[in-house]
Design a protein around this nucleic acid. Structure first.
Length: 273
DNA sequence: AAATTACTCAACCGCGGGACT
DNA sequence: CAGTCCCGCGGTTGAGTAATT
């Protein structure tokens, strides 16, 4: 039996002990208790190990809402072993959850510094502005909102902000987006975005013509508000807010920093050669 | 008070891309 | 180079709750 399997079973017993010790109100079910205890004994360990060695067993994965004790197990596991390798987390932690489910739970709920509760006016405003720039790139938008997850932003947009924008205005904007080539805007259909994340961050094959890089270059070099960008890439800005990024220093600075970082990362490997 | 409708948000799913073999 | 696996993203679903009838 390899080391990983030993760790798995020891880990499960550790978590069980933690749960029992940490709370008298633990509502773990008898069947689950039996499972943990069984797998924690040397006999149970050997049984499971031998099964796993003969063929890779994928136990039936649990779905639905996470329970407090599951959260605790996942949290403790990640505190010790760190994030990443979610399939391993799923297997080693003893949670009967898929790797993706573990990842999602950690990212959207258990991670430290997650902000809960109402969105502030500032956050709301930023979401609207960033959505105007980036479309439905929820992870990018969430990256500019400390403590908020992409799921938070997406849900908030769909339930609150989306309905605040008059429908006919959205239709207008969408139809304009379709007409202008080179737009960063994303289609509203179920299909994947036209540009991938990395393409938006800055297209590797066409950096010079990248809307973001041309914009940041324009603005860094001084920049005239009336840069060609604002007309060439009209869909990014609405008529009532001409060249919004200049006015909005937050978004502006965020993008300059962002593009700088991406450029540095792109160029660095070549400099090292 | 019960039934129905509307709303919210956590979680799941399918897909694309990158890493690895 | 092809196949496989894993990760992350965005779209969607559905359970739980609140509001309304």
């Amino acid at each position: 039996m390899n080391r990983n399997k030993l760790v798995t079973t020891s880990w499960m017993s550790f978590c069980l002990c933690s749960i029992i010790n940490s709370s008298n109100t633990c509502d773990i079910t008898p069947s689950e208790t039996t499972y943990f205890v069984t797998t924690s004994t040397s006999r149970g360990t050997n049984q499971i190990a031998s099964t796993m060695e003969t063929k890779k067993v994928r136990p039936k994965l649990k779905k639905g809402l996470w329970r407090p004790e599951e959260d605790l197990i996942l949290k403790k596991y990640i505190e010790i072993h760190g994030e990443g390798r979610w399939q391993t987390v799923s297997e080693m932690s003893g949670l009967m959850r898929g790797g993706r489910s573990c990842r999602l739970r950690w990212k959207n709920y258990l991670r430290p510094n997650i902000k809960r509760g109402e969105m502030s006016e500032q956050e709301k405003d930023l979401i609207i502005r960033l959505h105007k720039l980036l479309g439905n790139r929820w992870s990018l938008i969430a990256g500019r909102l400390p403590g908020r997850t992409d799921n938070d932003v997406k849900n908030y947009w769909n339930t609150h902000l989306n309905r605040e924008i008059p429908r006919d205005k959205r239709v207008q904007e969408n139809s304009r987006e379709l007409q202008v080539p080179g737009s960063l805007s994303i289609s509203n259909s179920k299909s994947r975005p036209i540009a991938t994340k990395t393409e938006v961050e800055i297209r590797g094959d066409d950096k010079e013509n990248s809307p973001i890089s041309s914009w940041t270059e324009d603005t860094k070099n001084n920049s005239h508000v009336e840069s060609t960008y604002s007309t060439q890439h009209a869909p990014l800005f609405s008529d009532d807010e001409p060249f919004l990024p200049i006015v909005d220093s937050i978004i502006f600075q965020a993008f300059v920093n962002y593009s700088d970082q991406v450029l540095r990362e792109d160029v660095q490997p070549f400099l090292l050669q």
